[in-house]
């Protein structure tokens, strides 16, 4: 599904990723952990094609294609979804319209017709139920006036509607209290099927109590310094990162 080889990337001329290697197969769940500033968010931005990040070396191959030259929207249409750590507010743009537009962009790309308003309403209600979100997410401007937790929930709603092949969730658990975390984590669990691959970028082990990763990687200073199974996450929770970094 996704093969990252020796990936180096700069932000404002400073090297942040210093040779990342990662291999993710269909249906696998990978957790990427690491201290602040280790390059976790950068990795998600580089894979999704954010223009502020300059790739200086290496390759990102997704479904057997090197995607580094593709526009962010092309990557999205090919099935890569990123859940944002800080979803931006967009006044004036209706959340529901936005969801419909994104879904239709994908359907057109796949050679399908646009979804009918009735079918879309049905789909939306179904997904709102799935993640236990109310009508609050329909008639409002995109992310405007939502709490931190609600914004994350809105990301999960988009994930549910768009059904990507690869989802990268960037610190979806940050800034959530314990109750909100539970709702969001269970939402992800409900939404992700066994055919979809998932990368969870997180600081804390607590998200992994809900979603069991197949692999855990520790990122430090732009490199993966340790990989293991979910017991690695538990060890990190107990002992912190110091034993690995130093």
């Amino acid at each position: 599904m996704l093969v990252i080889k020796d990936l180096h990337a700069n932000v404002d001329g400073v090297e942040v990723l210093k040779g990342i290697n990662l291999n993710i197969k269909k249906g696998e769940v990978h957790a990427i952990m690491g201290p602040n500033g280790s390059g976790k968010s950068t990795l998600s931005k580089v894979v999704s094609g954010h223009p502020d990040y300059e790739v200086t070396q290496g390759s990102v191959v997704y479904k057997d294609e090197d995607i580094l030259s593709f526009d962010p929207s092309d990557r999205a249409l090919k099935g890569i979804f990123m859940g944002f750590q800080y979803p931006v507010e967009i006044p004036g743009v209706n959340n529901e319209e936005f969801l419909k537009m994104a879904l239709n962009a994908k359907r057109l790309y796949q050679g399908k017709d646009e979804i009918s308003p009735e079918d879309f309403n049905k789909l939306l209600e179904e997904k709102l139920d799935l993640i236990k979100a109310g009508g609050k997410f329909k008639n409002r401007y995109l992310n405007v006036g939502l709490s931190g937790g609600e914004k994350k929930k809105n990301e999960i709603l988009q994930l549910a509607i768009l059904e990507p092949d690869l989802a990268i969730l960037d610190e979806t658990d940050s800034g959530l209290d314990i109750d909100a975390l539970k709702v969001v984590a269970n939402g992800i669990k409900e939404v992700i099927s066994k055919d979809q691959s998932l990368i969870l970028i997180t600081h804390y082990q607590r998200l992994l109590d809900y979603i069991q990763p197949d692999y855990v990687h520790v990122l430090s200073d732009g490199k993966i310094i340790k990989s293991g199974d979910k017991t690695l996450a538990m060890k990190l929770e107990e002992q912190g990162y110091d034993w690995l970094v130093n």
Binding site: D71, P72, M82, P91, G92, V93, E97, F98, A102, A105
Partner: peptide, 21 residues
């Protein structure tokens, strides 16, 4: 970038934001 990451082109994104405005 938020729009683009959801598969919506830059042009459509601008049009949508401006129409909202």
């Amino acid at each position: 970038f938020y729009f683009e990451q959801r598969g919506i082109s830059r042009e459509d994104a601008i049009a949508m934001i401006v129409n909202g405005f």
